[in-house]
Design a protein around this nucleic acid. Sequence first.
DNA 1: AAGTGGTCTAGACCACGTT
DNA 2: ACGTGGTCTAGACCACTTT
Lengths: 255, 255
Amino acid sequence: MTARRIDPASDRPVYRQIADDLRDAIEGADLPPGAQLPSEATLVDEYKVSRVTARRALAVLVADGLVVPEHGRGWFVRRRPPVRRLSSDRFARRNEGKAAFTVDMEANERSFSVDVLSVGKASAPAAILERLELPAGEDVVIRRRRYLVEGQPIEFATSYIPLDIATGTPIEEMNPGPGGIYARMEDRGLVFERYDEEITARMPTEEESRTLNLAPGSPVLHLTRTAFASGRAVEVCDTVMDGAAFVLHYTLPVT
Amino acid sequence: MTARRIDPASDRPVYRQIADDLRDAIEGADLPPGAQLPSEATLVDEYKVSRVTARRALAVLVADGLVVPEHGRGWFVRRRPPVRRLSSDRFARRNEGKAAFTVDMEANERSFSVDVLSVGKASAPAAILERLELPAGEDVVIRRRRYLVEGQPIEFATSYIPLDIATGTPIEEMNPGPGGIYARMEDRGLVFERYDEEITARMPTEEESRTLNLAPGSPVLHLTRTAFASGRAVEVCDTVMDGAAFVLHYTLPVT
DNA sequence: AAGTGGTCTAGACCACGTT
DNA sequence: ACGTGGTCTAGACCACTTT
């Protein structure tokens, strides 16, 4: 940490100058991922500012997703989670017998597990029912689950399935059996045709931040997939992912 | 604004309680988009806290992308930009003669324009050259442009094209002619095969925040497209979009 | 001139982690 | 016990917008 001096006469606020200084150290190699930043007290001494100003500089870096504070320990350069790639061929026929998530994770050669949080009948948000072409207020089967990679939660998914498709099948059970719920739908004679995916980026709600152990300042990717089989929408799957932990990959053919 | 009282004895910090209070008013209908929040002085009076604490509560809402401050005027509920949809059929054959962006915008029925910022030869980042299968340090043609909808910048794009493809064609000019650079490549006999797209979400750099007029706390979608024609990579296009202003849409066929 | 947000200070007390 | 971050206060001065 070379304590570059601050120019109090500059247009740029002091707290930003300090933040810039620290950002340079992080983006250079002075402060690699996991490294501890100078303590607040140290910053107060080095830059000759009040503690509030020092904290404000650190808050800028937190908002940028570069730094994360740990109570009683210090401020640390954020460790970037390993990136996972989600390929658009994850639903390809040749993967039959494996759930899409399994295919992804094997391609990434990582240990993973699925946490089924809840399965039950309830009403769905209006936007979901619209996609399923169901009347407002209709009940559906809702499956909530969390995906873990190396013990860390990275993805939170909610599936909505029309009752007439799910009722009387393992889709209503916590464990839907080999191949996941898509395989159970095929057992029923449904023929899959296409998947529609919509992607947005936004800041997480506080609950999502907790559930996914997100660092402050990191956005989420929100993916809504609608599966079509035998001429109708058979499932909507809402997925919220740590934006820093995923790269979505699509191949568009020229048609 | 009903000033719900604060519980100083609660585990939840006072500034968060105030933020929650205001968030409820925003997510309800008390404070619709564009509405002015109570001034800092008003919050100080109503909640009996110091100005620093009131400001901290407001900072939480800014970080969540719900509120935006205007110097000398007040704090306002953020107006959400109209959402634009980017469909995966934007490169379909039937659109021939029109650039991809044009197709998108016509589908959205909005006024739009393109701002070519710069065109020239320079070296590209290593990650780009890798995708183009070019040796490190190689020069390419770089085209930077900004897309405007209703006068507002919403997308910043940089294209990288190998020299042997661009040299001697209008691809090197500010205005590449009807159909954009893809049409010029087809003029040269290249046959397009597929497009690879990679999507990530992240917080913007300060420059991106300025260029795109982003509200504080809003993430960007980063899309990197590689175009393949006649058996090779012919362009990499790096696009940074206001995450709140776009929904990306993909259709995956069952193969 | 009055009202609004933007920056900064000096000091206090509390809670968490480590030694 | 000590060092670290987490919260909060009261007051100051500046810059921008509106009246």
